[in-house]
Design a protein around this nucleic acid. Structure first.
Lengths: 191, 191
DNA sequence: CGATTCTTTGAAAACAGTCAATCTGTGTGG
DNA sequence: CCACACAGATTGACTGTTTTCAAAGAATCG
């Protein structure tokens, strides 16, 4: 829980009393490697904060191929906003790549907390707008950069993911095959 | 203004008095073909609704190539959320592809309206979450589909854009060259 | 250690991009 | 009304990049 405490204190002004209240309504989830936090067809009803570990969100296309949508490590939020808002089954999967610890709040409880603690609501809105900006930027990068540029960009934008996630998943995040990414990396190493 | 009236009445319950109030704080902008609503380096300070016309948002990469980020026609909102929130210069450009009419509200005025009219705030939040969902979906499609699939998908998702926007701009939206898109289209026609 | 997962490599095929030329339709000015 | 200019679309030949398939090597989890 300390990870979350540090996180929230860095972001917004929340009193100890409020933090205790937030804590009270939370529950902890532990995931082993390869365990899923969310599977396609389920409905996602939580706010979830990564306390420890590494996860990825992915989606399977009509050919059965998995495409990594995002990664998450300590201090990141995970979940599927679409299913959360619509309250309909998700098309995404969330899988732990390393043993992970997640803190969860039920949608209803989190809404209650946001009403009680305006700073929490602000934080939530900020998060949302930042992820919109990030995904629009990603579309631009995805359309304007070569595979090599994308990889370099990924490394500098997310050094933590680049360090901890296996290469073939980074490849599926960037939209290239693992072989291509492997070759790109070799060429880069030779320089 | 009637276009906007119809739009808002379809979306949320807003009284005539409220609509009048919304109208009072709005201003109309007329754009000729090729005129810009926003240029890189400027700061975007408005909510803007397209009453009539066709526009595109694009961004120029380091090689000077333009990449179309989105289109907008009647009943769509345009603008740059990033610059709007951060109040910093934008990296985007918004250009009218046809003569267009835009209704604008200053950020401050729109905030005021959202405080006065909760339904308007709800609408705004809904819009935002929907565009987040849309852009995440676009990332998935962009990574999982071939150029041909992307084009077919674009046509069925946005028939209006496909009909009215020139092909080379659709190509820059999809992240392929105009030549490639032209060939894809020919192959498709032969089937 | 043993099994599984992950990464690398090679060769061929598929795909998309580049360059350059041509074609088409639209609208403008003479 | 015609001729011209211009923006947009198409085509061909060529180049370059990425994928695919198949196999083997390296690293890591339990």
């Amino acid at each position: 829980m300390d990870v979350f405490r540090n996180y929230i204190n860095e972001k917004v002004a929340v009193s100890e009393t409020e933090l205790d209240r937030i804590k009270t309504l939370s529950s902890a989830v532990t995931l082993r490697r390869k365990e899923h936090l969310l599977k396609e067809g389920e409905t996602w009803k939580y706010r979830a904060f990564v306390n420890k570990g590494l996860l990825r969100t992915y989606r399977t296309d009509e050919n059965g191929q998995e495409h990594t949508i995002s990664f998450a490590v300590e201090n990141w939020w995970v979940g599927d906003g679409e299913s959360y808002i619509s309250e309909k089954p998700t098309v995404y999967n969330i899988e732990a790549l390393d043993p992970s610890e997640i803190i969860c709040w039920k949608k209803q409880d989190f809404n209650m907390l946001m009403d009680e603690i305006p700073a929490l609501k602000e934080m939530s809105e900020l998060l949302m707008s930042r992820s919109l900006i990030a995904s629009q930027n990603r579309i631009f990068l995805s359309n304007s950069q070569t595979a090599e540029d994308k990889y370099n960009n990924f490394i500098s934008a997310f050094p933590e993911f680049a360090k901890r996630a296996p290469l073939h998943l980074v490849a599926s995040y960037l939209g290239v095959t693992r072989e291509t990414l492997s070759r790109i990396r070799r060429q880069f190493a030779q320089k």
